[in-house]
Simulated scan of single mutants.
Amino acid sequence: MNKNQDNFRVSVVIAHYNAGNYIRKALDSLARQTMPQTDFEVILVDDKSTKSLDVILAYQEKINNLKIIREEQNHGYPSIPRNHGIDQASGTFVMLMDQDDHLADNTLERFASFAGDDSDVIIGKYAQGKYYNGTQVPFKAGKNIKDASMLTDHILNSLAPHKMYRRAMLNNYGVRFYDSDYIPIEEDQVFNIKAYSVARKISVLADQDYYFWNQRADLGNLGKSPTYTYNAPWKYLNILSAVFTIIEASPVWDQHEQSLLKAMYIGRLFHSYGTLLAILKIQQNDEKREQLIVELREIIDKYLEENDIWHVCQQSQWLVIGIKAGMNYDALQNFKKSIDKNAESVQELE
């Protein structure tokens, strides 16, 4: 049997856990899609919820091809449920949604149509809202881009999983989420870097709001488990090692692009979810802090050339320089204070 045989245009995959009524918005938006219901399937993978699935089961009368997969054990993260959903998909494209979010009525039709036969990843504009905390940078110009550049179109700013992917690409290159035992945080970043690294074309749709991110006020979204934090060095190190390995293995990016993307990514990582200094601060003790710094230094020395460092964004560049120069945690803190003091002096002179 051909693993890439298409029975639908789109397979929508949703990882689910105890969403209750919160999932109604997602399923209502899928029931309203302008794409004919015969053209798409919805695969909901339940991570062994402890609550009833009655809310979801009621939608089997509203959504023609609604399939429910129940995990035998709870994983605590969306990674494995999403993988199982992708494995069971039979659409030309796979659309990943979170259980709490919803789509514009024309999202599936518009994404699949814009992708055509050659786009492998389609990124749609997020609607800004009260609990939305994602980036708008790739969409600010309001311009649709058929073949977006990783270097100039701000694609690295969009690493959340709420996108449409060509299923043949996911299967042919083994693009799946890492097990949470290896990468329990930022799993979507590693998944998307892998997808970008093998995609023929990455497309951006910015002409309207397509994806509505409804982060719950109770912060109860799937994936936000108590261990979803950088409280151990290996969590941070595994992400960076995985991403750099993926970038260097890309059949699409040449060596120059790989160098720039590594610099761009480490700059992003060092300045997201709190700066690296904040991540160092929450480590269990001084030994763990120094372990993280030492192993980051090894990764930087292995993967970044001297000239690459100058392509790291300014907010993070000093951290890369300081770590490479052999600074420990206290020295990095003092380095930051001296940089801030110099910046203040320059402002006073201006």
Results as ranks from 00 to 15, higher is better:
D207C: 13
Y182D: 08
R268P: 01
P251D: 02
T229E: 09
V190I: 13
A242T: 11
T227R: 03
K194E: 03
F244R: 03
S250K: 04
L269D: 06
S197L: 13
R176T: 15
V243N: 02
Q215I: 11
V190Y: 00
P161E: 11
R167D: 04
L240T: 13
G223T: 06
I246K: 05
R268N: 08
Y178Q: 09
A249Q: 05
R176G: 08
L260A: 12
A199P: 06
D188Q: 07
K224D: 00
T227N: 10
L219Y: 12
A232R: 06
S225W: 01
Y196E: 01
R166I: 13
E187P: 00
V252R: 13
F177E: 04
S241T: 11
S197I: 15
W213F: 14
A242H: 10
L219N: 14
S197A: 15
W234V: 00
F177A: 10
P233A: 10
A195M: 08
A160E: 15
G223P: 02
P226G: 05
S225D: 06
Y236R: 06
N231M: 03
R200T: 07
V175A: 07
E248T: 08
M264E: 04
N238A: 13
K224A: 01
K163R: 15
Y178M: 14
P161V: 15
Y210E: 14
G220Y: 05
K201E: 10
A195W: 02
Y178A: 14
Y165F: 15
Y178L: 14
A263H: 08
N192H: 00
K262S: 03
I239C: 10
A217K: 11
G174W: 09
A217G: 11
A199I: 08
F244P: 01
A217F: 14
R268I: 00
R268E: 04
A168K: 15
Q215E: 06
E187Q: 14
P161C: 13
T229R: 07
F244S: 09
V190F: 00
F177S: 04
A195F: 01
G220I: 04
V175P: 00
D218M: 13
R216I: 06
P184E: 00
G267A: 14
E257V: 14
I246R: 07
N221R: 05
G267P: 08
D207I: 04
P184V: 03
T227L: 07
A206D: 04
N192L: 09
